[in-house]
């Protein structure tokens, strides 16, 4: 089993609903966020293109954050979900430095926090909060090893990219372009 996410940059309207849903579901403290929306504008008027991306932890298969964690607080859960065990985290910041996506932050309570793919919902058979709430249904979450899953189907039929693959992290979030 290998969880992943595909996000359709052509269907995303940048409403930031995923961000608010995540903050509510996971009780993210004010002023912080586990996911965020980026607008990238390329070109000069009138030849302009816009890409909207809902970004979060890429739950990399070769995670620099897991590798550099001195206590093993950052670890892989079933399905390759990268989690931080709060009671093991010493708040040294090494994983924050190690993440090429700046997806982690120091929680006001001291430990390091980030997207969990809403593992508590996934274990109950639900989608992560961001995926469930998306008004344009531009996000697909599922098992990349299951050839019949919707996410595998989407990735088979569409062009996609991942972020900074040259960092060698093997990110598991794919952007449909």
């Amino acid at each position: 089993m290998r969880y992943g996410m595909a996000i359709d940059t052509r269907k995303c309207v940048g409403c930031s609903d995923c961000v608010v849903a995540c903050q509510t579901e996971n009780n993210v403290p004010l002023g912080f966020c586990r996911d965020w929306v980026v607008e990238v504008v390329d070109g000069t008027y009138p030849n302009v293109s816009i890409e909207l991306r809902s970004e979060r932890c890429n739950h990399c298969a070769n995670s620099p954050c897991v590798r550099c964690c001195p206590t093993g607080a950052s670890h892989f859960e079933d399905g390759g979900i990268v989690l931080v065990e709060h009671s093991k985290c010493i708040g040294c910041g090494a994983c924050i430095e190690a993440c090429p996506y700046d997806a982690r932050y120091s929680h006001p309570d001291g430990y390091v926090d980030k997207c969990t793919f809403c593992i508590h919902r996934v274990r109950e058979g639900n989608n992560p909060a961001c995926v469930s709430v998306c008004p344009t249904s531009c996000m697909y979450f599922g098992d990349l090893d299951d050839q019949n899953s919707k996410i595998v189907n989407v990735l088979k039929n569409r062009k996609f990219k991942s972020l900074a693959p040259e960092a060698g992290t093997k990110p598991q979030i794919f952007y449909l372009v």
Binding site: G31, W36, V38, E39, V40, D102, Y105
Partner: peptide
């Protein structure tokens, strides 16, 4: 030209 901005208004302390 390339411009990138957070439309969701991200401004996390120290990040």
């Amino acid at each position: 030209m390339r411009e990138e901005l957070f439309v969701s208004g991200r401004n996390i302390p120290n990040i």
